[in-house]
Simulated scan of single mutants.
Amino acid sequence: MAQAPPTLGRKSSAPWDRLRPVKQDPLESMGFVSKGDNRLLDLKTQEAFYNKIVARYMQFCSRHSKNLDNAFASLSLEEGQPSSTATVKNPAIRPVALPSARDPPPLSPDLTASTTGQAINGPAPSPSSELSTILLALRKLREGLLATSASALNPVFSQRVHVFNIRAAILAFHPEGYHPSLLHLLFKLHTNEHPLPRSELIEMTTYLILDTAIRQNDLTEAFSLRYKSRIRYAFKSRIVDNILKSIVTNDWVAFWRVRQKVDGYLRAILHWHLESQRRTVLKAIGRAYYSCDVKWIIQSSTGSEMSWEELVKAEDVGWMRHGEKVMIRKPKDKAG
């Protein structure tokens, strides 16, 4: 008579057909409307998703508060932007103030992982991964807002989302994220029936004009935008005027003075001019001087935002340094 198989010494604590639920990031689990995910066609879902994005952004700022400028630069570095991005010191960044006055009450920066969908255990994601998730989620939300624009009662919520997106993408040096959003906000969502607040209108117009002049290197279009904005809603900005003038005249002294006074968002946009600015200054110094103080060269070409070693590496400077002096070229011997 065959014996019955021995029983297992350890029994399962749960039925075999019950699987442990997989923890999903709520920002990543939401899909694009264009790819068949219709959840963001619902207005309440849009608002809930936006609040989750804001919460994740606040957590990002809190987690990297000690080195926030490099955290924002990490995404552009990973995508192959110039390495000089990492050397930009941006003390004027105030990212936790991104939501406008019409937003819901600010969320605490000490958000736990459970409130933002992050796993409690395990290593923290890299700054570039976090930023990528946030910006991609904003893109999903903007796509859903565009698909429901005809049925929306008013564009105020959409305006709020675009303003948030523009500010976050500017700090992340991500033109693909902020430039289309700027155009849509200023030329589609800002209407006579539902105008942007005056302060935000001036702010967003400033970003568009300077981005056109600096990153896109289209001064003609930048001056045209400034003129049309003056006619349309009496746009005035001394900062825009001074920066455009400094770029046209290659006045690097005025450029650095303005850049030291502006906030983090404008400093991030002006970053796109730093490489050209450095080379212009170094060429001028090389033509005009035989020797110079190291500190003066660094101040003139980088606004003291790079060390001498970083400047030499970035621009392949071949000048010889002797202590606090740099020998640029030797004077020609006079004929006897």
Rank of each mutant, 00 (worst) to 15 (best):
S300Y: 12
M320G: 04
I328G: 07
M306C: 00
W308M: 05
K330G: 10
K334F: 13
E305Y: 02
W319R: 05
M327T: 13
T302F: 03
D316W: 02
K325D: 11
W319A: 03
R329C: 06
K313C: 01
S301K: 00
D316Y: 06
D316R: 11
S300V: 04
S300N: 11
D316V: 06
M327H: 15
I298S: 08
M306Y: 01
I298K: 04
A314H: 07
M327D: 12
M327Q: 15
G303D: 06
K334W: 09
Q299W: 08
D316E: 11
R321W: 05
Q299A: 15
W308H: 03
K330H: 14
V317M: 01
S301R: 04
I298W: 09
K330Y: 14
T302W: 05
V317K: 00
R329K: 15
V326F: 07
I298V: 15
P331L: 13
I328E: 07
V326C: 07
S300F: 12
V317E: 00
E309F: 03
E315P: 00
R329E: 08
A314Y: 05
K332S: 14
L311G: 00
S301D: 03
M327L: 15
M306N: 02
V317F: 01
K330F: 13
P331F: 11
M320N: 12
K325E: 12
V317R: 00
H322A: 02
K313T: 10
V326Y: 09
R329P: 10
E315A: 09
D333N: 12
H322Y: 06
E315C: 12
W319Y: 06
V326W: 01
V317A: 00
V312T: 06
K313D: 12
K330I: 14
V317W: 01
G303M: 12
K313V: 05
G318Q: 11
I298P: 06
K330L: 15
V312Y: 02
G303N: 09
R329L: 09
G323N: 11
W319D: 01
S307P: 03
G318Y: 00
E315Q: 10
K313F: 06
H322S: 10
E310M: 05
E324I: 10
S304E: 13
R321S: 09
G303H: 08
S307F: 05
A314D: 07
S301A: 15
A314E: 11
V326H: 10
R321H: 05
H322F: 03
K334G: 14
R329T: 13
M306W: 03
W319K: 01
S300T: 11
L311V: 04
S300C: 13
E315D: 14
R321G: 04
W308S: 01
L311Y: 03
K325H: 12
G323S: 09
T302I: 05
M306D: 01
K332R: 14
R329G: 04
G318K: 13
H322L: 03
K325C: 05
K313M: 09
A314R: 03
E310K: 08
V312W: 01
Q299L: 13
E324H: 13
W308R: 02
G318V: 05
M327G: 11
E315Y: 08
V317T: 01
K334S: 15
E315G: 00
R329M: 10
K332Y: 08
M320S: 12
D316I: 06
G303T: 07
W308L: 12
K313W: 04
Q299F: 05
K332P: 06
E324Y: 09
V326D: 04
S304V: 04
E305M: 11
H322E: 10
G323M: 03
